[in-house]
C-alpha cells in the first residue's frame, strides 16, 4: 500500500518536473523568437519544409474529408428531408473543425516527428553542444525558426485545406448527388460567417506552435543514442496529437460557447 502511494507520488512529481521543464522551455523559446538575432535562412527553409512540402498530404486529407462529409451528411440528412443543408454542413465543419484538426494531426506526424528526430540526433551526436561552443544559441538557431515557421505556415495550410475540402464536397455534391453547381456554391457561401474561418485559422496557429514545441522539446531533451531519438520522435507525435485535440476543444469553447 505504501509502495503504491509512493509510486503515485513519484509519478506526480515526475509530471510536475516535466511540466515545469516544458514551461521553462517554451518561455525561453518564445523569448528567443522575439529578440534578435534572427536566422532568416533557417526560417525560410523551415517554412518551405512545413508549408510547401506538407501540401500534398494536407490536400489529400482535406479533399477526401470534404467528399465523405458531403456523402455522409446527404445520406444522414435525407432521413429528415434536409439534404439542402449539405453544402453548409460541409463548409462549416471544414473551416471550424476538420480543416485545422486534420491538418494539425497530419503535420504533427510529418513535421513534428522530423523535428524531434533531427534535433534529437543533433543532441546525441553532440551537434547541439558544438553549436554552443561556436557561440551560437541553439534556441535561436534551431528552435525559434521552427516555432515561427510552424505558427506562420499552419494557418496557410489550413486555408488551403478549407478550399480543397469544400471543393471535394462540391465534386461529390454535384457529380454524385446531383446538386445544381451554382446552387451548391451559393449554399456554401450563404451561411458561412467570417468567425467560422477565423476561429479555424487561430486554431491552426496554436496547433502549429504545439507541433513545433513538442518536436523541439522532445528532440532537445532526448538522450541515449538511437533509442532515445526514437522515443523522442514518438513522444513528440503522441503529445502533439493529444494537445491538439485538447486545445481544439478549449479554443472552440472560447469562440463559440455562450
Amino acid at each position: 500500500m505504501t509502495q503504491f502511494l509512493a509510486l503515485i507520488g513519484r509519478v506526480f512529481l515526475a509530471f510536475l518536473r516535466h511540466t515545469g521543464r516544458l514551461v521553462t522551455f517554451s518561455a525561453v523559446a518564445l523569448y528567443n523568437m522575439v529578440l534578435p538575432p534572427y536566422y532568416g535562412r533557417t526560417l525560410s527553409r523551415q517554412m518551405i519544409e512545413i508549408g510547401y512540402y506538407s501540401l500534398p498530404v494536407v490536400g489529400l486529407t482535406a479533399i477526401f474529408s470534404g467528399m465523405v462529409l458531403a456523402l455522409q451528411s446527404h445520406t444522414g440528412f435525407a432521413r429528415f428531408s434536409a439534404e439542402g443543408a449539405v453544402a453548409t454542413v460541409v463548409v462549416i465543419s471544414l473551416t471550424r473543425e476538420l480543416g485545422p484538426v486534420l491538418a494539425g494531426l497530419m503535420v504533427a506526424g510529418r513535421v513534428g516527428a522530423a523535428m524531434a528526430a533531427e534535433i534529437g540526433t543533433m543532441r546525441v551526436t553532440e551537434q547541439i553542444d558544438a553549436l554552443v561552443t561556436l557561440s551560437t544559441n541553439p534556441f535561436k538557431y534551431l528552435i525559434a525558426p521552427r516555432l515561427l515557421a510552424a505558427v506562420l505556415m499552419l494557418p496557410a495550410l489550413v486555408l488551403v485545406a478549407d478550399i480543397v475540402g469544400v471543393f471535394g464536397g462540391y465534386l461529390v455534391g454535384v457529380y454524385k448527388l446531383g446538386f445544381n453547381p451554382a446552387n451548391y456554391i451559393q449554399r456554401t457561401w450563404e451561411y458561412l460567417q467570417p468567425l467560422d474561418v477565423i476561429s479555424g485559422l487561430v486554431k491552426a496557429g496554436v496547433f502549429g506552435f504545439i507541433i513545433a514545441l513538442m518536436g523541439c522539446y522532445n528532440g532537445y531533451h532526448s538522450k541515449g543514442g538511437a533509442q532515445g531519438v526514437g522515443s523522442a520522435t514518438r513522444n513528440a507525435v503522441v503529445s502533439a496529437s493529444i494537445l491538439i485535440l485538447t486545445f481544439n476543444y478549449l479554443i472552440t469553447e472560447l469562440f463559440f460557447a455562450q
Binding site: 543533433m122 551526436t125 551537434q127
Partner: peptide, 9 residues
Amino acid sequence: FQGAALFDS
C-alpha cells in the same frame, strides 16, 4: 568533439 559533431545538414 569525440565524434567530430559536424553539422550534417
